[in-house]
Nucleic acid binder design. Structure first.
Lengths: 323, 323
DNA sequence: CTGAAAGCGCTAACAA
DNA sequence: TTGTTAGCGCTTTCAG
């Protein structure tokens, strides 16, 4: 296999009998330039014939900005939910000419900031908010926009708020929060918990009683015991899986749902309806979230402010039996 | 927030009172250059003070090669297994100064080749072999090395071969293969199936009877019925999840494992031991696979041939009750 | 041992 | 409407 060099835009120019600038204009559809259709076609044709591909690094260097967006995924069990999110986001960004790649934290890979710098990302998206320090680091690593950052408010808070509100509306005065054990999930959980806390405070209730649990009934039972001691009657679980564990824990303690203790999850995963008893949970339109997120990034990247003040989440209660 | 420009290597040079060339030499530890420790320190110090970060695109442009590796993940349910693989690979590559990012196929994101070109990846790694056409495309998109490609042999074949061999050794003369329904998994499954076919052929047995099944007992039962008709007594499942479904299917048909039909999975997932009956499966040292894969990429990228002829997989039988 | 200078491939003023 | 010309930030020969 001969290692022929990749054709450059100069090659295309030569092949089309125009200047390299013209090639650039045509290929970028540069607005405000009235290039005769005839020339355009000649250039396009030449580019196609040569299998020309613009050299990303060169373009980035010249433009001063890449069209790469990096998604930072924490060290968590990647379920189908996150997969759908990633793919949706990639699609939404692609419509704006942006390319999304994913970085999985954890393991012995490079730290996020290095990855950001190495691939020349011009935006970094996280699942949960980045703290100020990280945002700063990322900016220094070349990212122009970083979301969500703590300064613009958590994106997970509304979920917790919504969960807690449901419980409060049903008369619960002492709320518990079921925190996942898995460390990669904790930051996200903490954001949701924060929302729960806000709802409690707003209702004049004491702060939620936080207990960690993994996905086994005995640790969940332990958490349930603690809640019982503290007089908790309604618990918000980080997500449906955690909620299902809590359900099991409640059963194990010989209590009944939702009379003795009510539970509400998040995500509306398929098996939520198969739980015993069927789990009440909240869900939201993933596509809407994704598009909103993409829009924010695109807007920032192009200098505009995000259009409208559309709320990111439209929580949807999926009431079943456990609350 | 003031949008100060990022410091360049020229800034560092100025701050250190040396030429930009020297900075480059020091920062890259350029071999064969005996730079006095005193100067080195001055440069390093200046770089640190300015928070200098080399500009990836510029470096890539000048060097003609990036240090980015792209992992192409098909549209599949990302389980914990794949996550570990990704993180392991990222770690192994990082040791060689390479940065790994992941692209999830599926959805409406850009095609792999575009992503490859956009991020300027110099290597693309897939889970299953790329066909010739794709390899070619990727090369044109700027990737210097693409693995695994069909020309260098499938990486999944040995797994299937090993599964089948176990069954054959136990006296089974008619082998079935349980193919997953999920389309993203099919290419990988086909590679493993190929290995199964080879083992059968080598033993003078007819080709395996292929049935698809998803993760529910009724479709699995249908598959089991087909196998029974065809006289199949041992089935290789694509992975443990599929195998567990098959187990359920066998039960549903009123047959008993492994007397009437034996099953062997792949992956040794935690729940494999909890299945009824406990599932025999094969596993392999993920770290070894990962390191091997990384080594191949690094070797190719640096022009060397991969060291040694170490086999990629060291399959390990985890025998339990279902075969 | 260090620096000057020529690009890498592309974009974008500025001319023509 | 198109071409000329300077860089973008870094690497790397080749002189000094």
């Amino acid at each position: 296999m001969t290692r022929r060099k990749r054709p450059t835009s100069t090659d295309v120019a030569r092949a089309a009998g125009v200047s390299q600038t013209t090639v650039s204009f045509v290929l970028n559809n540069r607005p405000g330039q009235s290039i005769p259709e005839e020339t355009r076609q000649r250039v396009l044709e030449a580019a196609r014939r040569l299998d020309y591909r613009p050299h990303a690094s060169a373009r980035t260097l010249a433009r001063g900005r890449s069209n790469i967006v990096l998604l930072a995924v924490p060290d968590l069990p990647m379920g189908s939910g996150i997969t759908r999110f990633v793919e949706g986001l990639a699609g939404a960004l692609a419509q704006h000419g942006l390319t999304l790649v994913t970085h999985l934290a954890g393991g012995h890979g490079r730290p996020l900031t290095d990855v950001c710098a190495d691939i020349g990302a011009s935006a970094v998206i996280g699942l949960e908010a980045f703290d100020e320090a990280t945002v700063h680091e990322l900016h220094k690593a070349g990212a122009d926009v970083v979301v969500p950052s703590t300064r613009q408010g958590s994106s997970m808070g509304p979920i917790g708020r919504f969960q807690a509100q449901h419980l409060i509306d049903r008369g619960h005065r002492r709320i518990g929060y079921a925190m996942p054990m898995h460390s990669g999930l904790v930051p996200m959980a903490e954001e949701r918990l924060h929302g729960v806390g806000e709802a409690c405070a707003a209702a004049g209730l004491p702060a939620p009683v936080v207990c960690s649990t993994d996905l086994e009934s005995d640790t969940a039972a332990r958490a349930v015991a603690r809640w019982t001691e503290q007089g908790v009657t309604g618990v918000c679980a980080f997500n449906d899986e955690t909620a299902i564990a809590v359900l099991a824990g409640i059963r194990e303690r010989g209590l009944v749902v939702p009379t003795d203790m009510a539970v509400i999850g998040v995500d509306d995963i398929p098996t939520a309806g198969l739980a015993d008893p069927p789990l009440t949970t909240i869900s939201f339109d993933l596509d809407a979230v994704v598009h909103r997120r993409a829009e924010v990034v695109v807007a920032r990247l192009t200098g505009r402010e995000p259009s409208g003040e559309a709320t990111e989440f439209r929580p949807l209660l999926r009431q079943r039996r456990s609350t």
